[in-house]
Each structure stands twice: as C-alpha cells, then as structure tokens.
Design a binder for these strands. Structure first.
Lengths: 208, 208
DNA sequence: TATTCTACAGACCAGACAGTATGTAGGCAA
DNA sequence: TTGCCTACATACTGTCTGGTCTGTAGAATA
C-alpha cells in the first residue's frame, strides 16, 4: 500500500535530505552516545523512513563515521581552531575562548559535554574506525593550539623554556576534563571554577 | 528438567556469588559502557544464570548502581585517596601518584580509561541516580586532593595565594582529561606527555 | 512519449536482550 | 524428620532494533 505520504513533498533534494539525517543523527549521538542512538529516533526527528536512511548510508556505523567527518570535525574547527587564526595576541585569544566558553555555549555543553570527547571516550576502545577519525580531529585541534602557543612564544609573550607541543596537548586534555567534570556535576559553576584553573596555568607561562 | 549443573557446586555462598556478579558487571561496564553491558555476558563470565542475577539485583539499573557504590567508589579511594593519607610532603605525594600512574596501571587504563569518568560521561545526563553516585565519588576524591593541597600550603610548600578548593577541582579535571586523551590515542606516551603538563602546573604552585 | 534511474516509502524479518515464571536443591529450625 | 526459606537453574516472552525487500513517484534522458 502506497499513499502520497506527507502531502506536499518538496522537489527532490537529496543533498539536503542527507544533511538532515546527519544533523539528527548527530543530536541523537550527542545525547545518547553512538550505541544509544536509535535509527528510529533519527527517522522520527527527520520525518523520513528507513528507505531514505539506507539509501544515503549503508549502515549505522557508516552513518556514525559520517557524523564525525561532516558534523563534529567542522564543529571543532569552528569552536577551537578558527578563533585562534590570525590573532594579534594568540595566548590571550586562547584564554578568551576558554573563558567565554561557559557563557557562549550553554546549556547543552554543560548537560551533554563535548561531542568530540563523548564519542572518543565511548568508541575509541571499541571501533578503530571511530578512533582514527576522532583522533584526527584531536590532531587538528592540537595543531592549531600548538601553533598559537608557538606564535606567542616567538612574540616573547610566553617563556622560551615552554614545550609548546606538550603544553598544547595538556591544554586540550585539561579543557576536556573541565567540560567532563562540569557535565558530571551538571553545573555551569563547576565549569567556570575548573576553567579558572586552566587559565591560571596558561598565565603561569607568561614572561614576567 | 534439573541436573546437577556444573558438577561440583561448592556449598552455598551468596555473598561471594553477589561479589562475582558485581566484578563481572564492572568489567563489562568498563569495556562497553553501561548501555553496552549485556547481562548475558555477565552471566557467561560468572557461569551463573538469570535466576542468580535477578535474585541478587532487581534489574539492570540496580546492578549498575551497585557497581558504582561497591566497586568503583572503593577503587577511587584506593587509587587516588589512600596514597595521599598521611604523606609527609602532600604535594610530592600527589605528584608521585600522577607520575607513576602510567606505569602502575597499564595497559587497561590506556585502553579503557578511567572507570569513574567513563561512566560519569556516559550516564550523567541520562540517569540522575548514576549522576549522584558518581558525583559523590568525585566529591570524595576532591576532598582528599584539596586536603593534601591545604596541608602543603600550611607547611609552606605552596604559595598562600593558591585557592586549594579550586585547584583540587582543576587537578581532577586535568587528570581525567589526560587519561581520556591517552585513551583516544590508545597511547601510553600521550598519557606521559599529558601528565607532564599537569605536573608542571603543580610545580608552578610551589613557593620558590 | 517511452524508458530509465534516482530518491525515497513502508512493510517485513531475524536476532538480541531485559525481564518473568516456575521449579528445585541445599541448609536450617523446630 | 518435617517443613520452610534461601539461592539459585531454566525455559519462556515481549519488545525493541538494525537491516532487508519490494514498490513507486518524480526527474532526467533519449
């Protein structure tokens, strides 16, 4: 039995359909994790059906991979990488991004944490495909942070004995830790307190 | 139909049976997350059956709660809290615990991360019962860390302008972040690099 | 206009999985 | 010894879920 389904179907737009699926899948993964994501929920959110989903993606895993590549990775670039580009004072730019985070992205960030880290923590030990994609995103982020630190170092803003590579790694880890702890407490205050510790660390790198 | 099951069944020991279930459930949760844990796998690991499990626990959720209270919480105390008790130099004791971590607890810690944080990240937004129990564990840990810092402060080992409460929170967050990043990379080296950053921060608190 | 292909719709299926219902053997009390 | 309760074993069920299969309307093509 076949009816006209949802009365008015706009002219075909497969790219947009695919994008809608990706975004709905992202939200489901963000809220429930990849294993917790139900394809039926994604379809309900998009008002699509199995046919559409399996036309665009061969299976659940491929959908998950696409969410990482096409949603999460660009998100990381927008939030953590672009704001550092071409900053006059790279160290201050980094501090600013961290300081403003609690207020620029609530309340989802507090409630559900960091999409990148969530998925990395869940899937890294279970699926090498996920791990590599997520680790690649961390790599991009790390590169941008390291570059900002190195520029600050060249400008004489931070001490010359700082290992920017190492510090960039630690900054990423600390940031994810702060977000994670705030999520555990479901408290924006916790995030602010935690971030203050990180900022204190960054300031301790400054040449006095 | 009833047979003697596994030939020799030791005399009844319900407490031990319960403990075996708890430990197997912990391992399953540790590896796959709570949502990913399959009761059948727990039973296979313990060579028990549904009857035993549902005799000791009313449902999967209750089993999860018990794992937090009776396995994970004691584990946190053993790893992060007891080593700080009664240390002559509390700051150094803290640094030691962090520094030795990569070598005292591999390779599971690298592969699967921190049981406490894993579960907190997965379940905090989804189940308030989990969240409260896990947040309580973080609270215990935080208290011990703060106390160590305050003692160090009273001993004149770290600066008086340090907010020990705040720093303890950040130290926990940074540690979980380091472990998480190492897990994402599946690399012990990453953990060492990351921890070095944290230790650098702790040393920066010292009175010079 | 006829044909073909794309982009879906919707019914269906098989396996997995939490939970239940029932039965029973061992130990303890009386 | 009898009766009872605890500590399990085992078969079973309902539901959820990823995935498949078939069908079809619109657009492109010839």
């Amino acid at each position: 039995m076949q009816q006209a389904a949802n009365t008015a179907r706009a002219t075909r737009n497969p790219d947009q359909t695919r994008q809608r699926i990706l975004e709905a899948a992202f939200m489901e993964i963000y809220r429930n994790g990849f294993q917790g994501m139900r394809l039926d929920e994604v379809l309900a959110a998009t008002h699509l059906t199995k046919g559409a989903l399996y036309h665009h993606f061969p299976n659940k895993q491929a959908l998950g991979y696409a969410v990482v590549d096409e949603v999460i990775l660009p998100m990381v670039q927008a939030v953590w990488i672009l704001p550092l580009r071409g900053a006059a004072d790279p160290l201050q730019a980094l501090i600013d991004v961290i300081e403003q985070m609690p207020d620029t992205k609530p309340p989802e960030m507090i409630q559900y944490g960091c999409p990148l880290n969530n998925l990395a923590q869940e899937m890294s030990p279970l699926d090498e495909g996920f791990r590599q994609r997520l680790d690649h995103a961390f790599g991009e982020w790390h590169g941008a942070t390291r570059q900002a630190l190195q520029q600050a170092q060249q400008q004489g803003l931070i001490r010359t004995d700082c290992d920017c590579e190492e510090i960039a790694t630690f900054v990423m880890a600390a940031l994810e830790g702060c977000i994670g702890l705030a999520k555990s407490a479901q408290s924006k205050d916790r995030l602010k307190v935690c971030n203050r510790g990180l900022i204190q660390f960054l300031r301790s790198l400054k040449t006095h």
